[in-house]
Amino acid sequence: MNKFFNDPNNFVPEMCEGLVMANPDTLKYVPEYNMIYRSDMPSNDKVAIVQGSGSGHEPAHIMAVGKGMLDAACPGNVFAAPPVDFCYECIKRMNGPKGVLYIVNNYQGDKMAWQMAEEMALAEGINVKGIMVDDDVSVKDSTHTIGRRGVAGNFFVIKAVGAASEQGADLDALVKLGNKVNSLVRTMGVALTSCTPPAKGSPIFQISDGEMEMGVGIHGEPGRRRDKMKAADEIIEELFNAVADDLPFQSGDRVALMVNGLGGTPISELYILYRKAAEMAKARGLTIIKNYVNEYCTSLEMAGASLTLLKLDDELEALLNAPAEIPIRVF
C-alpha cells in the first residue's frame, strides 16, 4: 500500500487539518465532529447547506465547502457514514433564522444518520429539511442502497442550492430546487482498478488487469457487469447511452456534461473521454452549455470515470454560472 498517511486512523482528521491550514481565512474546523465549515457561517441571511457522507470521495464534500456551495460538511471515516452526532452538531452549529438544508446521497447509513439528526434538531425547534440525491442509473438496489445510488450528480445539486441560498432563497424553495436538480441529473461510472482505504490496508474488491467494472458504485459496489477492457470511445459510448436514455435526454435539450475522474485516472484520459462524449451529445442534438472535466466525486485512488448529464433550463443555467469559491478551484 503506497499511500501518504501517518497513522491510518488519523487519515480523515489530518486531511481536514491540512485543508483548514491551506484555507485559514475561509474555513474553520471542529475536530470532534470532522466538521469543516465556512468561517462566515452561521448567517442571518441565508439557509445553511450541509452535507456529510463517507470520506474517500474528495473533493466531495469537505472541499466543496465555500461561498456559493456547501456551508459545512461532516464526513465519517473512509467510506463510512458520519455518526448521528456529527450530523446533529453540524445542523445545530450552522442553524440560523433561515434554517438548515441537508443534502444526503442515497445510502442507507447516511440516510439513517441524517434523518435521525433531523428528528433531534426538529425537536429542538430547528428548521431543518433534507433532500436526497440518487442519480446513478447503473443499478436499482445495491450493496448499501434501496433504490439508486447518489454519486457525482450531487455536485450539481450542491451548486444549484448553494447559489440560490446565496441569493436569499428560503428553505422550502431550496428543497424544491434540490429535488428538481436531482430529477434532471443522471450519472454512470466505470472502474478500471480497485482502491485501498488506509485503515483497511487491502483493496475493497478484486479486479484484474485488462478488466473493468461497468456501472461501478463509488465504494466499489458491483455495477452492471464485469467486462474486458475496451477502447475509450467504446466505454464512454456505453456510459453516455445509459445516462442519456434514462431521463431521457432529447434533441434540443440544453445540458451540462461532466466527465468525473474517480481518483486514479489522469486528466489527459478524462479529456479523451470528453472528446467522444461531446461528439455523442452533438449527434443526439444536445447542446452542451457547460462542461466539467475534472475530479468531483472520487473513490480514493480508483482508476475510472463517470459521466453525468444535467438537463438545463434558464434557472439552472444561471445558478451554475453564479460565482462560487471553494478550495479546489484551480488557477
Binding site: P83, A113, M120
Partner: peptide, 26 residues
C-alpha cells in the same frame, strides 16, 4: 444514550435501537 447507541451499535441495529431511545428522549 440514543446518540451512543446509534453510533456504536453496529450495522442497522444502531440506528434502529437508537431511534427508540431518541423517540423516548424527544
Amino acid at each position: 444514550v440514543a446518540m451512543l447507541t446509534t453510533s456504536h451499535v453496529g450495522g442497522s441495529s444502531g440506528p434502529i435501537w437508537g431511534t427508540a431511545f431518541m423517540r423516548a428522549a424527544i
